[in-house]
């Protein structure tokens, strides 16, 4: 058997003739050129800004949980670390470009992620999931307790710095978020196709077999925590700087961590586009619910009732997805696409 003379055939997309990069490219082009044609300030600030930040956080968590199989309930903590780190780099390092602040913030989040990922070397399953809660509570406590982090602001709520002249206004902030999200998503999509990405899945699917096959299991787990926390940290920066435009610990509570976990479950574990589909649903759902509620029940449908019905709906959605579509919206989309293709006469 000769190993050198075997040619490398192009990987064929499972769907068929269409190259796999075409659809994502079309979406990116539309996001840059199409959306600004019709988007209102409301669409930018109330929908697209949180959507982009949550999508990115979900991409990050998906690397850790979906691909590498390590369940984390502490995502919001890493978002908080990113947001606060970027704020402090920006505040305390004279002349540091905003982009550099964000990259450094991601690296800090990454380092914190590795520290809280250390238990994964000995703990598995629920024991690990519970241990990630330590990150959630410890980080939240630290940021509230030590006012240095919020520059001794008495309310603890601080204004995020502006994104700079180029990215002013809703449209500018959108372009900024979009560019960060596109860059990191392309990175993530590439990553999961490399040997490192295969190692993640191998560790997830069978840790013992992975170890015996030569996958450096401990290194791989910590790397998953590091990369995931970097991306989630940057998502935290987008959340604070481009969406809320304030930095405060309360926005990064346990509910936020669960929300990101729900996004990847609803969207589909171990898929990149699932993170976006899930985030879209989670962002749009309360808006639709609010409109529908007011329409149906009028003034009885106040913010308290909305809050509760939203909780019930999100919880129920999770259960329904786990039972009926465990592979999430991504798989649902695939099935619908396949059915459409079968039906269309041209194909």
């Amino acid at each position: 058997m000769t190993t050198a003379s075997i040619p490398l055939p192009r990987p064929v997309s499972a769907i068929g003739r269409v190259p796999t990069w075409l659809l994502p490219l079309a979406v990116i082009v539309f996001a840059y050129a199409g959306i600004p044609l019709f988007a209102s300030d409301y669409l930018y600030d109330a929908i697209l800004a949180p959507f982009l930040a949550l999508s990115l956080a979900a991409v990050g968590l998906n690397i850790l949980t979906g691909y590498a199989g390590q369940v984390s309930l502490g995502s919001a903590a890493f978002m908080a670390v990113g947001a606060y780190a970027a704020y402090n780099f920006n505040l305390r390092v004279e002349g540091l470009p905003l982009l550099a602040s964000i990259v450094f913030a991601g690296l800090i989040a990454s380092a914190v992620g590795v520290v809280f990922g250390l238990p994964s070397l000995r703990l598995k399953g629920f024991y690990l999931a519970v241990s990630t809660l330590a990150a959630q509570f410890f980080v939240q406590w630290t940021l509230t307790k030590f006012s240095w982090f919020s520059n001794y602001n008495p309310s603890g709520v601080i204004d995020a710095p502006a994104l700079g002249y180029v990215f002013e206004g809703p449209h500018g902030r959108y372009l900024f978020s979009l560019s960060v999200v596109v860059a990191l998503t392309v990175f993530a999509a590439r990553l999961v196709k490399t040997q490192t990405g295969r190692n993640f899945i191998a560790v997830r699917d069978n840790e013992t077999a992975a170890k015996i096959s030569g996958v450096p299991v401990l290194h791989t787990k910590l790397l998953a925590f590091a990369i995931s926390s970097f991306i989630i940290g940057v998502a935290g920066v987008l959340w604070a700087f481009a969406y809320l435009r304030t930095v405060e610990p309360h926005g990064f509570n346990l509910d936020r961590s669960f929300q990101i976990l729900f996004i990847i479950i609803i969207g589909g574990l171990a898929t990149i586009r699932g993170a976006f589909l899930g985030a879209a649903l989670i962002v749009v759902l309360p808006l639709v619910l609010s409109r529908a509620g007011t329409f149906l029940f009028g003034s009885y449908f106040d913010s308290g009732v909305l809050d509760m019905s939203q909780r019930i709906l999100v919880g129920a959605l999770i259960i329904v997805f786990l039972i009926a579509e465990p592979d999430g919206l991504a798989a649902l989309g695939n099935r619908i696409a396949r059915r459409l293709r079968l039906r269309s006469p041209t194909n």
């Binding site: 509760m308 999100v314 999770i318 259960i319 786990l322």
Partner: peptide, 17 residues
């Protein structure tokens, strides 16, 4: 586990509604 997380949301929302 995640299903019980969803269940927690339903029960909390339901109890308060």
């Amino acid at each position: 586990f995640v299903a019980t997380l969803g269940l927690a949301y339903v029960l909390e929302g339901g109890a308060q509604l």
